[in-house]
Write a protein that binds this DNA or RNA. Structure first.
Length: 454
RNA sequence: GCCCUCAUCGUCUAACGGUUAGGACAUCGGAUUCUCAUUCCGGCAAUCGGGGUUCAAUUCCCCGUGGGGGUGCCA
C-alpha cells in the first residue's frame, strides 16, 4: 500500500535453548531484506516466559548472530530510539496498550486473566509469500496471564506497532497465529504490517520441522567444529531462496543485491548437513592464505600440535608462520573443512603421529617397502639437491632401475614420514618437512619396522 | 476433528503456457603414468493422482492424496 514506508524488520527470538538453524535462517532473511532495501534490522528479545528463558540462551543467541555476521541496527548492545529491546523491561508500555483495549471494550477480565474479544470477522493476512490469506479467529484468547505477565501475541503486536515494524518476516508456523495478530492490530486502530511467512526447515530424516534436539541444529556446533561462518550463512540463504541462475556460492554482497521477498519460495526445505559440509569445504579451499593461517593456528594449538612460539618440531628461530604457512600452502587445496585439519596435517608438527592401519599392507603389495625406503634414503643422503625437480628425477631413476612404478616409492615414503596414504603433493610434502626431518623419519621407520619384524 | 499452507530427481532448487525439464549436493563409474578428502569428465535420477481450461499445461482452475504448521494462561 504505502510503498514509501521505510523498511524496518525485526528478529524477535525468545531466549530458550540454544540458537538453532531455523532461527538463524529467519534472522538471516530479515537481515538480508533490511540490507537489500537500506532499511533497519532490529533485534528484539521476547523474554516473557520466566520459566524457560535463560541467560545462557541469550548468550548463545547473541554470539551466534555475531558469528554469522548478522549485525543489528537496534537492539541489545546497539541501542536505538525504540528501546528497551527486552520485552521483560517493557511492562509499562504493555499496561498502557491493554488499557486502550479495555477502554474500547476489546479486553475483559476472566479467571484472573485478561482476555481479548475477537471480532467474529475473518482476518485478512496480506502475505508476500502466501498471497492474501483469510482466517477466522473463532475464540477469545488470553493476552495477560493471571500472574500478570503478558502473552506473546499481545506483546509481539504492541512492539511491532511501537517499533514501527513495516514487514514481519517469520516462520510459517506463525501463519495461523497471524489472524490473532491482525485482530490485535485492528483493535489498536493500526494497519497490520506486510507479512512474509517463510517456509520451515524440516528434519533431515523423519517427519516434522527441525527442532533444537536434532543433530546439526545448533549454530554453536558449527562454530565449535570450525565451520566458516560465511559458508553456513551462504547455505542458509539457499533454503527457500535462490539467485535464479545456477550459482550457489555467492559473496554475501551479491546475495544482498539480489535478495527480495518475492524470490522466496513457499515450500519447506529439508536440512542437508552434507551439502553444508561441502559448501564449507569450498569456502575453506578459497580462503586467503592469511585468513587460513589465522583460523588454523588456534585449531592446531588446541589439538596440542602447536604451542605459541614454536611451530616446527625441530626448527628454532625461523619464523613460526613460515613453517605453518608452508604447511597450509600445500594442504589447503585438499582440505574438506577445518575440523579435520589436525588429522590431515598433524604429522608436520609431531613425530608422534598416528599411522593408517591399512598403510603398511598397501605399500607391501609390490614387495618389501623397507628396501625401497632404503634406496630412497641412500639417494637423499647423497648429493641429490633437496629440491622438487631433482627429487622427482631421482625417484624416476629409482623406479626405472628397479622396474617398479614411481608410485611404489612415493607411497612407501609418504607412509613412512606421515603415516598417511593421502595428503598434499608428495614433493611439496618433502620440501616442507626438509631433508633432515625426512631422513630422520625414514630411519626411524626402518628401525621400528625392524623391531616389529623380529 | 477443525483451520491454514505447500507439492519438480533421494535432497536443495531453475524453467514469460511452447525446453532433449537445467544446475548443485549425495550416489555410481572413469581420468589426473604420487595419493585423494582436491580437480576434471561421465552415468543414474523428478514434474503426486484424477478431472478441466487451452492448438499447447511442470506452469492456470477444481477435486483427491501426501507433507508441513496451527488449534496453550509456550514463543
Amino acid at each position: 500500500m504505502n510503498a514509501k514506508l521505510p523498511v524496518r524488520v525485526r528478529f524477535a527470538p525468545s531466549p530458550t535453548g540454544f540458537f538453532h538453524i531455523g532461527g538463524a535462517r529467519t534472522a538471516l532473511f530479515n537481515w538480508l531484506y533490511a540490507r537489500h532495501c537500506g532499511g533497519k534490522f532490529i533485534l528484539r528479545i521476547e523474554d516473557t516466559d520466566r520459566q524457560r528463558d535463560t541467560e545462557e540462551a541469550l548468550r548463545s543467541l547473541i554470539d551466534g548472530m555475531r558469528w554469522l555476521g548478522l549485525e543489528w541496527d537496534e537492539g541489545p548492545g546497539a541501542g536505538g530510539p525504540h528501546g528497551p529491546y527486552f520485552q521483560s523491561e517493557r511492562g509499562e508500555i504493555y499496561r498502557e496498550y491493554v488499557g486502550q483495549l479495555r477502554d474500547t471494550g476489546r479486553a475483559y477480565d476472566r479467571d484472573g486473566a485478561v482476555w481479548f474479544r475477537v471480532s467474529g470477522q475473518p482476518a485478512l493476512i496480506r502475505d508476500r509469500i502466501r498471497g492474501d490469506v483469510r482466517r477466522l479467529e473463532e475464540k477469545d484468547f488470553v493476552i495477560v496471564r493471571s500472574d500478570g505477565s503478558p502473552v506473546f501475541h499481545l506483546v509481539n503486536v504492541i512492539d511491532d506497532i511501537a517499533m514501527d515494524i513495516s514487514h514481519v518476516i517469520r516462520g510459517e508456523d506463525h501463519l495461523s497465529n497471524s489472524s490473532k495478530h491482525v485482530e490485535l492490530f485492528q483493535a489498536f486502530g493500526r494497519e497490520p504490517p506486510t507479512f512474509a511467512h517463510i517456509p520451515l526447515i524440516l528434519k533431515t530424516v523423519g517427519s516434522g520441522k527441525m527442532s533444537k534436539r536434532d543433530s546439526g541444529a545448533s549454530i554453536e556446533d558449527y562454530r565449535r567444529r570450525h565451520y566458516i561462518p560465511a559458508a553456513v550463512r551462504n547455505y542458509l540463504c539457499l533454503l527457500g531462496w535462490s539467485p535464479k541462475d545456477d550459482r550457489e556460492i555467492l559473496p554475501i554482497e551479491e546475495i544482498i543485491r539480489l535478495f527480495d521477498i518475492d524470490g522466496i519460495n513457499g515450500n519447506n526445505a529439508r536440512f542437508d548437513e552434507k551439502k553444508l559440509a561441502f559448501m564449507d569445504g569450498e569456502y575453506v579451499r578459497a580462503l586467503p592464505p592469511e585468513e587460513l593461517l589465522v583460523r588454523a593456528r588456534p585449531i592446531l594449538q588446541s589439538a596440542g600440535l602447536l604451542s605459541a612460539g614454536e611451530s616446527s618440531p625441530q626448527s628454532e628461530g625461523d619464523g613460526c608462520d613460515g613453517y605453518l604457512g608452508a604447511v597450509l600452502r600445500i594442504c589447503q587445496e585438499k582440505l574438506r573443512g577445518l575440523e579435520d585439519l589436525p588429522g590431515f596435517c598433524g604429522y608436520f608438527f609431531s613425530r608422534d603421529f598416528p599411522r593408517d592401519p591399512k598403510g603398511l599392507e598397501k605399500i607391501s603389495k609390490t614387495g618389501d617397502p623397507a628396501a625401497r625406503i632404503r634406496e630412497f634414503l641412500e639417494a637423499i643422503r647423497g648429493d641429490c639437491p633437496f629440491e622438487e625437480k631433482s627429487l622427482e628425477g631421482m625417484v624416476r631413476r629409482l623406479a626405472d632401475k628397479s622396474g617398479l612404478k614411481t608410485g611404489d616409492y612415493i607411497h612407501a615414503v609418504r607412509h613412512a614420514v606421515s603415516g598417511q596414504m593421502v595428503g598434499p603433493g608428495f614433493y611439496g610434502l618433502l620440501m616442507v618437512l626438509g631433508r633432515e626431518e625426512v631422513q630422520a623419519r625414514l630411519e626411524n621407520f626402518l628401525h621400528t619396522q625392524g623391531l616389529l619384524q623380529d
